[in-house]
Design a protein around this nucleic acid. Structure first.
Lengths: 148, 148
DNA sequence: AATAGATAATTAGCTACCTAATTATAATGG
DNA sequence: CCATTATAATTAGGTAGCTAATTATCTATT
């Protein structure tokens, strides 16, 4: 199927389908109302252990536009999972910090995701993921460099 | 970075970023107002050479929900790139056919996409894409089977 | 023949992403 | 010191994807 399409087209096509299927599966396993994007932000705080960040730095960390980060942070704030405060040193900026409820929610998400993740690892031949990861990282890095 | 996350999580994370970057780049190279999703549908008609299809079959071919296909087809119809007619044999169904304007638009999209696709193929080491494709196809197939 | 159950498509309402344009504040240069 | 330029965040408006619920029609069962 599609064997006459350019190789790059076919690769990105597969990637698009996988992204869609996996995002969907993971969303299902998250607590009601949580999305992968929102979880990623909570996870970011816990993993890096930083006290706080800013919308602009988060947008750049996730390679997402600032308006997109702005609305995702609003949803997290509305749910009480993140606190937004004005930056005392810069009247334009804001500080974003995870709340205790946010940490709890992050832990619940980790629990929910564990099953589906293990499922995938169990259904796939043992080397597939370890073979894929470096190749994907290589492609991602090149695409990242190209967009400048 | 993230070396303590589950391997599957890291793989899907890379895939998500690549999907985002590539979709963005390809959208830029398409004629004004066209999206990758819309192009894919036009391309589907030309490639398979079918006279017409139905919203339901298209939704299933692209592994997308029917409401999603419904709105994408509406946009294509609004742009005159696709024609929707009632199915004469089934009062519930519709037939979808590509128009002449749709074929012309599809050709323009192919031209626009050629540059970025060649760009990627030129910037990447020669084996990366051919190494990736079968692994991605394998993963996609397994995920596809798992969601049942 | 009538009722119940599938199926086709759409509508409503949500999240994620984008660009373009606004608003507010900082930083810089004449 | 003021004007310009840059930066932070948001608002407005658009596309793509989803689920849940509607409407219409077909199919099957009784």
């Amino acid at each position: 199927m599609s064997t006459d399409e350019p190789i790059a087209y076919r690769v990105f096509n597969e990637i698009g389908i996988i992204d869609q299927l996996s995002t969907h599966a993971f969303t299902q396993s998250l607590p009601r109302g949580m999305s992968v994007a929102q979880f990623s932000i909570l996870n970011h705080f816990v993993r890096l252990g930083h006290e706080y960040s800013t919308p602009a730095r988060l947008a750049s960390a996730f390679q997402v536009s600032r308006p997109t980060m702005s609305t995702t942070l609003s949803r997290l704030e509305r749910a009480g999972l993140v606190a937004l405060t004005p930056d005392p040193d810069d009247g334009r900026g804001k500080r974003v910090a995870i709340t205790q409820a946010g940490r709890t929610m992050r832990d619940q998400c980790i629990v929910g995701l564990a099953g589906p993740l293990r499922d995938v690892e169990d259904h796939v031949r043992s080397d597939l993921l370890t073979d894929l990861l470096p190749l994907l990282a290589e492609l991602r890095q090149i695409l990242d460099e190209m967009r400048n």
